[in-house]
Amino acid sequence: MRLAELSERSGVSTATIKYYLREGLLTPGRQINATTAEYDEEHLRRLRLVRAMIQVGRVPVATVREVLRHVDDDSLGRTIRLGAALWALPQVPEPDEEDEHIRAAHREVDQLLETLGWSNARALVTISPAYRSLVVAIATFRRLGYDWDPELNLAYARLMHQAAVLDLDFVETHPSEAEKVETAVAGAIFVEPMLQALHRLAQEEESARRYGFE
């Protein structure tokens, strides 16, 4: 397809597509002559992802470029490729390791991973932003004085493992490695808010069941 058709099918203006091409967010089309290039379904799929990341996910262009660099790096195994792409997304700041609540949260999270038998997750603790996010969240909760039972974290973690199985089962339905990683990235940006919304709806439903509307 030509640029005009790519624009029409994607709903993205030709000017914006040209900008994405200049920024390296889309690979160049197949050059037909000096002024015309041809694009395919992969360009259309990637364009829709880029547009959604920037417009809906509010991901900066430089970050999108970094994420896609890992998505397209077929020299990496799938786990590292996926991890690198997800880790390039905006993350929580590095925690203050001198903070007593942070140190206690590290111990709590390490114990949680050991109890779960998540040896692969434990191997990534020094580099995984998700590990840092969990440490910061638990530390913040403790700092506010809430008595959150570690057994609750264990129960939630087991539920999240079931969600992860569903996630990767869905990822596996896509044919190419790039599509698999793209789908996982899209899930991190768009499915996580959906799960959060479902969680809150479930809380509202359970609250109504228990306490009514009075």
Results as ranks from 00 to 15, higher is better:
D74R: 14
E42D: 10
L25A: 02
R200S: 10
V64M: 03
V61H: 05
A85W: 06
P193D: 01
R210P: 02
T140E: 12
D73S: 08
R122G: 01
R107H: 05
L124C: 05
G212I: 07
T173E: 13
W118Q: 06
H70S: 15
A202Q: 04
L116K: 07
E108Y: 00
L201F: 13
V12R: 06
V136G: 02
D147C: 14
S119D: 09
R143A: 10
H101G: 04
L44W: 10
T115W: 02
M1N: 03
V171Q: 11
P175W: 14
P193A: 01
Y131H: 12
S176E: 05
R132S: 01
E38Q: 15
V135T: 06
E66H: 09
T16P: 04
A37Q: 12
E192S: 10
R9L: 05
D149T: 04
T126V: 10
T79N: 06
A4S: 09
L47H: 11
A52D: 15
D96R: 03
R200G: 04
G77H: 03
P28A: 02
R132Q: 01
A104T: 14
R2Y: 10
K18R: 15
S133Q: 11
E98M: 05
Q111A: 15
F213D: 09
A178W: 11
L124S: 04
R142V: 07
Q162N: 13
T183P: 05
D74F: 07
M53I: 12
W148M: 15
V135K: 08
M53R: 11
H101A: 15
Q55W: 04
P129E: 03
A155C: 13
A84M: 08
R158C: 00
V12H: 07
G24T: 03
A85Y: 07
E179N: 11
L113T: 07
P90K: 03
R107L: 08
A164R: 09
R78G: 12
L159M: 14
W118A: 12
I127M: 14
M160K: 09
P90F: 01
A52R: 15
T126F: 07
R209N: 03
F141Q: 08
T126H: 14
G117F: 02
A15R: 12
A88H: 03
H174W: 11
L76K: 07
N153P: 11
G145N: 10
